[in-house]
Simulated assay, not measured.
Amino acid sequence: METKKGTKVKTRSKGASAGFIIAGCFIVACVFFFGICGDPGNFDEKGHPLTGNVFGTLYQGGVVIPLVMTLLLTVLSLSVERFFALNRANGKGNVDKFVYSAKQKIEAGDIAGASKLCDDQKGSVANILKAGLIRYEDVEKITNLNNDEKAAIIQKEIEEATTLELPYLEKNMNIIAAISSLGTLFGLLGTVLGMIRAFAALAQEGSPDSLALSTAISEALLNTAMGIATGACAIIFYTYFSGRIQNLTNAVDEVGFAIGQTYTTTHK
């Protein structure tokens, strides 16, 4: 973003592409499921998983399991990406301390000192405050507007800077939110498919096929467990990152209000 004075305020990169992450997770899930879990060494001569063999047991979940694993790996990957992204957005120091120090300098009329704090802090809140401080210095030179109109210009600059920063903060959050439901739904799909096979085994004339019945029940239960685990992870991470984003947004609102109030009170 560029101000009227030509000073550029650093904006954020677009971050990691969710499409590549999902594709990579799908490939990893398929290799793990078919190559490792499906290895014949995990099963006995009757096709049962060896006692205590987790990979063989997981393979009994059926073809829906790789899809649920893809969703789980996607949640974990995007959560790691968001963790580091939000750490960068916080800047180099504690955001609350930065906001407190910046407000003190702004209220004291030390705009240069507040600007220096932004340069040292970096991060999203510092970027937005820096944009407001630059506009603060710009409007002081305007003579044909009253103080309320100048304060409104400063506030608008902060809102525009916030609009540029928010997409970076919220990137990929919608995907994590969607997986919180999709994980459970895919697990339910696998459960239903497993139960269909279980009833098919029971419906056979004569004695039921015990191998087919046990395999179908295992498929149903494994899909249920994987789906619930995936949905739970997505909800936990979404709630955590949403809270961090809200804290950053609150910090922006606080310093934005401080700038507008300070300009109005010090330019009477």
Rank of each mutant, 00 (worst) to 15 (best):
T3Y: 06
K5E: 15
G6P: 13
G6C: 08
R12H: 10
S13A: 14
A16N: 12
S17E: 14
F20C: 00
C25L: 06
C25K: 08
F26Y: 12
A29T: 07
C30V: 03
F33L: 05
F33K: 01
G35W: 05
C37K: 03
E45M: 09
K46C: 13
P49W: 10
L50Y: 03
T51C: 00
G52I: 10
N53L: 12
N53S: 12
V54H: 10
G56T: 11
G61V: 05
G62L: 01
V63S: 12
V68M: 01
M69D: 12
T70F: 14
T74S: 15
E81C: 09
E81G: 03
F83E: 04
N90K: 15
G93V: 07
S101W: 01
S101L: 06
A102H: 12
K103A: 13
K105M: 15
E107K: 10
A112S: 14
A112D: 15
G113T: 09
S115T: 09
L117S: 02
D120Y: 13
G123V: 06
G132N: 05
G132E: 07
I134S: 05
R135W: 10
Y136T: 09
T143H: 02
N144P: 11
N144Q: 15
N147L: 08
K150T: 07
K150L: 06
I153R: 09
K156W: 10
E157S: 09
I158A: 00
I158Y: 00
E159L: 03
E160Y: 13
T163I: 15
P167L: 01
I175H: 04
I176W: 08
L188A: 03
L188R: 00
G190S: 09
T191D: 07
L193C: 02
I196D: 02
I196R: 00
R197L: 11
A198V: 12
A201N: 02
A203E: 08
P208T: 00
L213D: 02
T215W: 01
T215I: 05
T215R: 13
A216K: 01
A216S: 14
A216H: 07
L222V: 08
T224C: 08
G231F: 04
A232W: 08
C233R: 10
F237S: 00
T239Y: 08
T239L: 07
F241C: 01
T249Y: 04
A251T: 04
V252L: 03
D253K: 10
V255W: 00
G256I: 06
I259C: 14
T264C: 07
T265L: 11
K268M: 11
K268W: 06
K268Q: 10
